[in-house]
């Protein structure tokens, strides 16, 4: 090995070592208060359920895992796929996907608009995005009810303006849920988007126009690729938490259908089946982790492509 190669190799090692030191505090906190305790959940999923919640320690069983995917029919005793769990999982995934898409549709223009303002106004607007979130989610959801209910602001305004004669039923529909979810998760989309938009190099945009691209083409071919890391971050931040959301679906949607969050909650609560709750959570964790890793890998590979 030549000296140069050896020195480069050593520098690389030193660099990696520094990078481990820099990550150490975060990893340490996460290990104590997030990842480590999760092993408890993994253990729980493999134990016999306690009679009234909790588990019977060190008595192992795969019942929890079995009932995530299969169920013994309570009426005719046949074993089949746990249809209810699948339906609830699918409902939650669908809700999260639509929420992510909607927040992106609303959040992208908003973040962009903020990022092209003069710096001082920019800071103000960013702060303004987060101010509503200084109030608790429950009370925000209650306030939203006042906006969309039949005697609420929107309906009153529309009737007053003569657009409609009778109030439109928004409360207790899927629309109410989407409205509420977008409202709740919007800053999680706008802030990362803004963070990556704020330093768009507009010379590239200008170059686009010089090449006779239209507004839309510039947006699609220049701006969106440039802010892709922000889109990825924002989508992750909205998609995953909304998978577990259930306050908004309950208050605004009426709560007649279970969400994944409720289902897991039920097992740790009135269902008194902690192993099933634990197994359900780990299933969710595995699905999301795999999806995320594939996504991030692809995104960073493409991201590295356009070079600096």
């Amino acid at each position: 090995m030549s000296d140069a190669a050896r020195i480069a190799e050593e520098a690389r090692r030193a660099d990696i070592r520094t990078r481990w030191w820099l990550t150490a505090p975060a990893l340490f906190i996460l290990f104590i208060a997030a990842v480590g305790p999760l092993f408890v959940v993994l253990l729980f999923s493999l134990m016999v359920k306690g009679d009234y919640g909790d588990v019977k320690y060190w008595q192992f069983s795969t019942d929890g895992w079995f009932s995530v995917f299969f169920e013994r029919d309570i009426f005719d005793d046949t074993v089949g796929l746990a249809q209810a769990h699948m339906e609830i999982l699918w409902r939650s995934v669908k809700l999260s996907l639509i929420t992510t898409l909607l927040t992106l549709l609303v959040g992208f223009p908003t973040a962009y608009y903020i990022s092209i303002q003069p710096p001082k106004k920019r800071d103000l607007l960013v702060f303004m995005i987060t101010i509503p979130f200084w109030t608790n989610i429950l009370i925000r959801t209650f306030a939203m009810q006042e906006v969309i209910r039949n005697e609420g602001v929107i309906n009153t305004l529309l009737i007053w303006a003569g657009f409609i004669e009778r109030p439109i039923q928004i409360m207790y529909t899927d629309w109410a849920i989407f409205f509420g979810m977008v409202y709740v998760y919007l800053p999680l989309m706008v802030l990362p988007l803004y963070a990556s938009m704020e330093k768009i190099d507009f010379r590239l945009v200008e170059a686009g126009y010089d090449l006779y691209a239209g507004r839309f083409q510039v947006l699609r071919r220049v701006i969106i690729p440039l802010v892709k890391p922000g889109i990825v971050a924002g989508s992750i931040l909205v998609f995953i938490p909304s998978l577990g959301a259930y306050v908004t679906p309950r208050v605004l949607g009426g709560g007649k259908n279970l969400m994944l969050g409720n289902l897991i909650d039920l097992q740790f609560g009135q269902g008194k089946n902690w192993p099933l709750g634990a197994a359900l959570s780990i299933t969710l964790l595995v699905i999301v982790t795999v999806a995320l890793l594939v996504y991030v890998r692809n995104a960073s590979r493409q991201g590295g492509g356009h070079g600096h």
């Binding site: 209810a84 289902l263 097992q267």
Partner: peptide, 11 residues
């Protein structure tokens, strides 16, 4: 059994 019925009703 009750939990299963409940889950199925609310699915």
């Amino acid at each position: 059994i009750y939990t299963k019925i409940w889950t199925d009703v609310l699915k």
